[in-house]
Amino acid sequence: MKIIKLILLFLITTNTLFAQIKVSCVGNSITEGWNGNPSYVPILQKLLGANYIVKNNGKSGATILNKGNKPYCKQEAFLRALNDNADIITILLGTNDTKSQNWDKYSSDFKSDYVALIDTLQSTNRNAKIFLVIPVPACRGNFGIRNDILNLEIPIIKQIAKEKGLPIIDANTPLLESCNYFNDGVHPNAEGANAIALLLYQSITK
């Protein structure tokens, strides 16, 4: 009986030691990767190492706004994020919400829809630590994405984080002077993807 208990203890300890921490990256094309522009997710996986498993749950064009032109909550990526049973969730959304067809009509819903997204993710990932990522700057007005509107979103995201007691990862301020990291003004190139991954890595492992 004593030997059996020792074997069970060994198995439990071994499983605990080698259990991977699951990270779910929620986002848009900046997360998913788009048109040859790389995703930061594989780089984040390399930085975090074998003790983590990082999943890409980004969807190109996705919005926080539920009445936006492509709500994240209606995408398959959202279902994957709900079912990940993640230990850590990062949310990098808001860029596509700045488009005129989204923000100009539904900006008053931005905060409530963001909170609803968080609450839904928490409902199925009850023990997950959620990081709200301040979106990267929009260096040019490509794709209808407006940096001046992005600047209106930032204090709302910070307010949500404060009210819900969630940590923030600022992927905006450190990259304000790094427009060369975004070839089309929005999507990161290799240098940009590395920079974003490093910012997430530093916060996750802090």
Rank of each mutant, 00 (worst) to 15 (best):
M1I: 14
M1N: 15
I4L: 11
I4C: 11
I4F: 10
I7C: 11
I7R: 08
I7A: 12
L9Q: 14
F10R: 03
T13P: 02
T16R: 05
L17S: 03
F18N: 08
I21V: 15
K22S: 14
S24K: 01
C25L: 11
V26Y: 03
G27C: 06
N28Q: 06
S29L: 01
I30A: 01
G33T: 05
G33W: 02
G33V: 00
Y40R: 08
Y40I: 04
P42H: 06
L44C: 13
L44T: 07
Q45L: 12
K46D: 15
K46G: 11
G49M: 06
Y52F: 15
I53E: 06
V54R: 09
K55M: 14
N56A: 03
N57D: 11
G58F: 00
K59S: 13
S60Y: 00
A62P: 08
I64H: 07
K70T: 03
P71W: 00
P71T: 02
A77M: 04
R80G: 06
R80P: 02
L82A: 05
D84A: 14
D84V: 10
D87E: 02
I88R: 02
L93V: 00
D97T: 01
K99Q: 14
K99E: 04
K99G: 04
K99Y: 00
S107N: 09
F110L: 05
A116Q: 13
A116W: 07
L117K: 07
T120C: 03
Q122E: 14
Q122N: 09
T124L: 08
N125Q: 12
R126F: 14
R126G: 07
A128M: 14
I130F: 05
L132E: 11
V136G: 06
G141M: 09
N142K: 15
F143N: 09
F143H: 12
G144M: 02
G144A: 00
I145M: 02
R146I: 02
N147E: 01
D148N: 15
L150A: 01
L150Y: 00
P155G: 04
I156W: 04
I157H: 05
K158W: 12
Q159G: 14
A161N: 08
A161H: 10
E163P: 09
I168L: 13
D170G: 06
N172F: 01
T173D: 13
L175R: 05
L176M: 02
S178D: 15
C179S: 15
N180T: 14
P188R: 11
P188K: 11
N194K: 15
L200N: 04
Y201L: 05
I204H: 10
